[in-house]
């Protein structure tokens, strides 16, 4: 396994031989290695201080406002419009990412061509490039006088400062998630399986659709969910190209900022709670999908 697969991949590959013992209640497997209490204690305290306690502040704050205040904020037409745009554009962008991510993974794993190394290295650019930089770059490219925008303008197609711009930024940001989840699984497919399909008379397309694609489905869905989760919360790369018109091209994270600028902490918190709950649900789904992917791989 390449040590450097980015981000949320490979969640719980069990340690070699570690599942032989079932640990008892709160006990750990007997080990002669030192430092367990210190390492675990430090990790848990640090996790609580940096992540858990601050996150719980959002829920407590929102509880102190009460259900009415929460509901009033969330169903406000301008907020609803921002949710619609954020979820809608993220879904479409994640779907495009799934399609092109699969294509990228396929071409990178199966074919050798000029520039393959460059493509493989730069696929992770959206991870590495600060979002504000991506944001102003995309806005400049797709503006009416930009490299791409000036080509599309005669066709009557405006991208910058419209909801389409939001979509373009989200496609940019989500691509590596799918490529990097599908790529290792595709590398693991044994050639024998495809050869068997070919021997049995399947065409190349049939082999892909009936043999390879089902095998890739868990990884593909994981990548889709990761890209979607990232897209829904994305802020920096979107706000420059979105134009941020109320009811038209405002994304949900921007609504939080807007509420904060009006010192409406309760309102900002209410939107944050909706987004956090969605993140938690997505995280659970992604964990389930990853377990599924690994079961599939181990079953071979």
């Amino acid at each position: 396994m390449p040590a450097a697969t980015i981000d949320a991949l490979d969640v719980d590959t069990p340690a070699k031989g570690a599942i032989v013992h079932r640990p008892g209640l709160l006990a750990r497997r007997h080990s002669i290695l030192p430092g367990f209490s210190l390492a675990l204690g430090y990790s848990v305290v640090y996790l609580a201080l940096i992540v858990l306690i601050p996150l719980s502040a959002v829920f407590l704050k929102s509880a102190s406002v009460g259900w009415d205040g929460f509901w009033h904020t969330v169903v406000h037409p301008r907020v609803l419009a921002s949710f619609r745009l954020s979820f809608g554009a993220s879904l479409i962008a994640a779907a495009i990412n799934a399609a092109f991510g699969l294509l990228f993974a396929w071409v990178l794993v199966r074919y050798r061509f000029l520039g393959r190394g460059l493509v493989d290295a730069l696929v992770d650019l959206p991870f590495a490039l600060p979002t504000a930089v991506a944001g102003i770059a995309l806005a400049t490219l797709y503006a009416k006088n930009g490299w791409i925008g000036s080509l599309l303008e005669p066709l009557g197609w405006e991208i910058a400062y419209t909801p389409t711009g939001v979509f373009v930024a989200l496609v940019f940001i989500g691509l590596p998630f799918v490529v990097r989840t599908v790529q290792p699984v595709l590398e693991d497919i044994e050639a024998e399986v495809e050869e068997a399909a070919a021997c049995l008379g399947a065409t190349r397309w049939q082999t892909f659709r009936r043999v390879i694609l089902p095998y890739l489905t868990p990884a593909l869905l994981t990548g889709f969910a990761l890209a979607f989760a990232r897209a829904v919360g994305e802020y920096g790369s979107v706000i420059f190209i979105a134009g941020n018109m109320p009811f038209v091209s405002e994304i949900a994270p921007l609504m939080i900022i807007t509420k904060l600028e009006q010192y409406d902490y309760a309102g900002a918190t209410a939107i944050a709670v909706v987004m956090l709950v969605l993140s938690f649900v997505l995280l659970l789904i992604i964990n389930g999908l990853q377990a599924w992917t690994q079961r599939g791989q181990r079953g071979r």
């Binding site: 969640v11 996790l47 704050k61 939080i256 987004m275």
Partner: peptide, 21 residues
């Protein structure tokens, strides 16, 4: 392990908001 991953799935704006709260 899941909790360690949590910050990845939280929107950056929400990450800032929690410290404002």
């Amino acid at each position: 392990i899941t909790l360690i991953d949590l910050p990845f799935s939280v929107s950056p704006v929400v990450s800032g908001l929690i410290y404002v709260l």
